[in-house]
Amino acid sequence: MSKKSFRQAINEAMRLEMRRDPRVIIMGEDVAGGQGGTSGVVDAWGGVLGVTKGLYTEFGPERVLDTPITEASYIGAAAGAAATGLRPVAELMFVDFVGSCLDQIMNQTAKFRYMFGGKARTPLVIRAMFGAGFNAAAQHSQALYPLFTHIPGLKVVIPSSPYEAKGLLIEAIRDDDPVIFLEHKVMYDDEEEVPDEAYTIPFGEANLTREGDDVTIVAFGRMVKLANEAADKLERQGISCTVIDPRTTSPLDRDTILDCVADTGRLVIVDESSPRCNMAADISALVAEEAFDALKAPIRRVIPPHTPVPFASVLEALYLPDAAKIEAAVKAVMNHKVTEAA
């Protein structure tokens, strides 16, 4: 047990699983970096943000494969390798690049098992970083998890802390289905205590980071931290919140969300993804359908506007959910007055 960053936790998950299972391989753009350069240095980058650093040195070129910048072919190759005996972890760098390889994910990987009558196993993990907050603008900042969640056959994981990231990534690598593993790029230097050993966190079980009586907040990834910040502040003002980190959007732990809404009667959903057809909309529909009678106030969604992610800091800050917006939403549902029908 020691303090590890989000980046280290993810690196350690891959390292431990590569040691444990020779079928686990890593591939992606510059996951080592430097091959073909004039300095002769390999493992120059270890991924564009250094997440795979050192894996090439330990496992060599047969298991840590740099790819050309051709997402369709190497994501497809990862799927083909997964279907034929390897357990690849492919890095898509920025999830925004899925536009270049969506067919291989959506039409190939996700559908093998179903359309082949249950005969395929595709133990593939696609890691990608997502999210806004780095002035990376419209093509490098999206939170595209609803896109993957929409596709049957994929599992979608959004870790909210270093501990969560390590356990969920090891679970993903050992899972026999294709898993999209999305890392918020602003979180790589976040630190917390993380066991040195391998451990797994099951998919489809939400984590309650706190329990309260008044309002249920559902948040994803980095938003979990912001929701807890808001809840800390609200606690001092006498409003107690439950904060749910679903951990995975597919499968989604519907029961925990519904149980908590039944307890608190109020729901705020914090979702960094574009607002139309996002997780906030999905969960709102779930609660409206299954827990309508428990609601004491309308559901509130803390979501960005229906725009691309802007570049300038002032606009990006406006765009993103933050603790203050969450706090305001919680107060709004607390202050809702039920008007009795005449």
Partner: peptide, 11 residues
């Protein structure tokens, strides 16, 4: 959750 954190460890 504390118990699960231990039980999740390999072995």
């Amino acid at each position: 959750d504390d118990v699960l954190r231990y039980k999740r460890l390999d072995g």
